[in-house]
Amino acid sequence: MNALRIKRGSSSHSAYNLRPALKEGEERRTLAVLVENEAGVLARVIGLFSGRGYNIESLTVAETDHVSHRSRITIVTTGTPAVIEQIKAQLARMVPVYDVHDLTTEGPAVEREMALVKVACTGEARVEALRLSQVFRANVVDTTLESFVFELTGAPEKIDAFVELMAPLGLVDVARTGVAAITRGPKGM
């Protein structure tokens, strides 16, 4: 039944956090990187992380300013404070990069992720899945007599928790966007 083999993770946040626990001395940071939307810019950023052995937990990117062709990349990464400083310096010195912001330290910031979750079930399980989706304020965006696709937005932990609850009910597929983040309050980057 559990096609995705999701294990209940040990967590520092909640019983349902499936993300790997941080290693000793490591921190998780959310970085916002403003770049010129030129060809290859994403390959450059990803190449920097793989070439220097940095972690990427999630990465999202889209053009946010169509007039001046700027994209915003949101990267969730982990590392020791010294490695995080290196990551920021390495990103900042790249030619197409305008600005690097560490939303975790500059925050407070809002972090949201969107997920599409497909669950196939009938009978009691189907009722339970729908009930739980209401608890999580998920939307049903597709349905058949034996399946749902839920759309869910929230902090990554919330999505983890929802996915875990769906597992025994007939979880089939999960698509997640990765984190988008923005600082709270009136000030921009």
Binding site: Q86, Q90, A92, R93
Partner: peptide, 8 residues
């Protein structure tokens, strides 16, 4: 001149 050289 390169901030990434510092504290590397």
């Amino acid at each position: 001149i390169d901030p990434s050289s510092i504290n590397k």
